[in-house]
C-alpha cells in the first residue's frame, strides 16, 4: 500500500512536493473521468486535492485520498475489465480516486477492514454479523427483486442419484471459505440440523476460496459435492454456462441477507453517504445499469440489519455447539 507507506514521510515542509505528486497521480484519473457523464473539472479536482493535503491532518488525509474498497469473492471478482469500468464509474460518482483491494480470502479483507486499512468492503453476511459492532451496513445487492440469496448444494452433473446432503456422507465436499455463509456456515448448519456432525460427515473437505471455484471443483468431479452462493452460480450460468452445466443443484437453502457492502466505523458521514449514494444510484443511470447488468444484479439498496438475523442465528447455533 504505497499511500500508507508514503503518509508518515510527508511533513509540512514537503507539502508542496506532495501536492505536485498528488496532482500527478490524479491526471490519468481525470482523463478517465472526462468520459463519464458527471465529472469534476480539472480545477476543482486540483483544488480539492490541494485542500486535503494542505490540511493539518495531512497523513490522515493522504490515506483518504483514494477510497479503498475491499472486494472479496462473494461475487465474480476476477473480471478485471469490469472492475476497471466499475472503478471509473465510482470515481466519477464520488469525485475521488477509488482503489479496489482484493485478497485471497474473506478473512484478509475483514482484517484489513477492521484494521481501518479499507474504507469499505463487499463482504459476506457471515463475517458481517460476526463483526456487526465494528461495521456499518452500507448497501445490500438486490437480485431478482430481493436483497437476498441462497446457498445451493451442488453435485457433479454426472451424479444422478444424490437427492440431499445426506447422500454425500463419506464423500469429498468443497467449501468456499471458512468465513462464507452460503459456502460454509449454511451447509454445516444444515448438517447439524440433521443431527450430523459436520466435522465427520464428509471423508474430506477443502476450501476453494472462491464460489466460482466451487463450481469448477464440483464440475470436474474433484469434489462430489459443494456449497455455493446462488448469486455466483446464477451469474455463472449466465456468462459461463459451460461451468454450471457440469453441476446439478440438489438443494436450495432458505433466503439469507445478500452479501453486504459495509463501511468501517471510522468512515465519515459524508464519505458514507457519498459512497452509499453512488452504489444505490447505479440503477438510476445508464452507465450504472450497464454495470449492474454485468454484475447480474438489479441494484443496491440500503438494506436492513434484520436481513442478517437468519445468518446470526445459524452462527450462534454453531458457536454453541463448539
Amino acid at each position: 500500500m504505497p499511500n500508507a507507506i508514503l503518509a508518515p514521510a510527508l511533513t509540512t515542509a514537503g507539502v508542496s512536493a506532495s501536492i505536485a505528486a498528488i496532482a500527478q497521480r490524479f491526471v490519468p484519473l481525470r482523463k478517465a473521468a472526462i468520459l463519464k457523464e458527471e465529472h469534476l473539472d480539472r480545477r476543482t479536482f486540483l483544488a480539492l486535492a490541494a485542500a486535503v493535503s494542505a490540511s493539518p491532518l495531512c497523513a490522515e488525509a493522504q490515506t483518504n485520498a483514494a477510497m479503498r474498497i475491499g472486494l472479496s469473492p462473494v461475487f465474480l471478482d476476477d473480471q478485471l475489465s469490469f472492475l476497471n469500468d466499475w472503478r471509473d464509474y465510482l470515481q466519477g460518482r464520488i469525485g475521488r480516486a477509488v482503489r479496489f483491494v482484493q485478497r485471497g480470502s474473506y478473512r484478509e479483507i475483514m482484517d484489513l477492514l477492521l484494521e481501518q486499512k479499507l474504507d469499505f468492503a463487499w463482504i459476506c453476511g457471515y463475517p458481517y454479523v460476526r463483526n456487526r459492532a465494528r461495521l456499518r451496513l452500507l448497501a445490500v445487492p438486490v437480485m431478482e427483486g430481493r436483497p437476498q440469496y441462497q446457498s445451493y448444494l451442488i453435485v457433479p452433473a454426472t451424479d444422478k442419484t444424490t437427492n440431499s446432503i445426506l447422500d454425500l456422507r463419506g464423500k469429498v465436499f468443497a467449501y468456499s471459505d471458512p468465513d462464507s455463509n452460503s459456502g460454509f456456515l449454511y451447509p454445516r448448519y444444515a448438517l447439524m440440523q440433521l443431527k450430523e456432525n459436520p466435522e465427520r460427515f464428509f471423508a474430506r473437505t477443502f476450501f476453494t476460496w472462491a464460489h466460482r471455484k466451487i463450481v469448477e471443483a464440483v464440475g470436474s468431479n474433484l469434489a462430489q459435492g459443494g456449497a455455493v452462493d446462488s448469486y455466483v452460480w446464477e451469474t455463472l450460468r449466465l456468462y459461463h454456462p459451460e461451468l454450471t452445466r457440469r453441476t446439478r443443484i440438489v438443494e436450495k437453502s432458505p433466503y439469507f441477507g445478500h452479501t453486504p457492502v459495509v463501511a468501517r466505523t471510522g468512515v465519515s458521514r459524508a464519505e458514507f453517504d457519498t459512497m452509499q449514494e453512488a452504489l444505490l444510484g447505479m440503477s438510476q443511470n445508464v452507465a450504472g445499469k450497464a454495470l449492474l447488468k454485468r454484475l447480474n444484479l438489479d441494484g443496491f439498496v440500503a438494506g436492513d440489519d434484520a436481513l442478517f438475523d437468519g445468518i446470526a442465528r445459524m452462527m450462534r447455533a454453531l458457536d454453541a455447539r463448539t
Binding site: F206, F207, T208, K213
Partner: peptide, 9 residues
C-alpha cells in the same frame, strides 16, 4: 496446508 484445491490448480 492440506489445500487440495490449490494443489489441483
Amino acid at each position: 496446508h492440506d489445500d487440495p484445491w490449490r494443489a489441483y490448480e
